[in-house]
């Protein structure tokens, strides 16, 4: 039995400890904001925070979450007004929106450890989050905008 928190609530799971958090969150906990895009850690759509740091939920098992706190897009802020979320809306970043929960979680993690990232640091940190619609120009600008407000 594994014990951890999800968005501040304590949870236990007694199924297969090798279950990726992605499927636990979506199919067990009913938190569907975290998206499945590739299942191999190569697209970033499933990005969540484990103890405040961005990880790929498809590559992070229940076992790895033991005793840790998991944050999903639903729990990033109580009111949806995290600086990154606001910047995303201000610049109308999303097109289809499917990758955006992962992008936002990645950006929030970046800004929590570096509140004035350079252009190159943004590229470095965000380049594992694919966007098939091609919103990169606005994602990059929104991270900079949010940096001013974090």
């Amino acid at each position: 039995m594994a014990t951890f928190t999800v968005n501040g609530e304590s949870r236990t799971f007694d199924g297969d400890p090798g279950t990726p958090l992605l499927w636990y969150l979506r199919d067990e906990a009913g938190l569907t904001g975290t998206k499945y895009g590739c299942g191999q850690g190569v697209c970033g759509a499933c990005t969540i925070h484990l103890d405040g740091v961005a990880v790929r939920a498809c590559m992070t098992t229940i076992e790895m979450a033991e005793g840790k706190s998991v944050t999903t897009i639903e729990g990033l802020s109580a009111d949806g007004e995290h600086a990154v979320q606001k910047a995303w809306r201000q610049l109308s970043v999303p097109q289809c929106g499917f990758c955006q929960a992962g992008q936002i979680m990645q950006a929030a993690s970046l800004l929590s450890k570096n509140n004035a990232p350079s252009d190159d640091e943004i590229v470095e940190e965000m380049s594992g989050n694919l966007c098939r619609c091609g919103c990169y120009q606005r994602i990059h600008a929104a991270v900079r905008l949010a940096a001013g407000g974090v």
Partner: peptide
């Protein structure tokens, strides 16, 4: 004009195919 789903997308509430329960 902002797209109507903008807020839902940024807070993880937008419903795509696999989000139907």
């Amino acid at each position: 004009t902002k797209i109507v789903d903008l807020r839902d997308i940024t807070v993880g509430k937008a419903v795509y195919g696999a989000d139907v329960r």
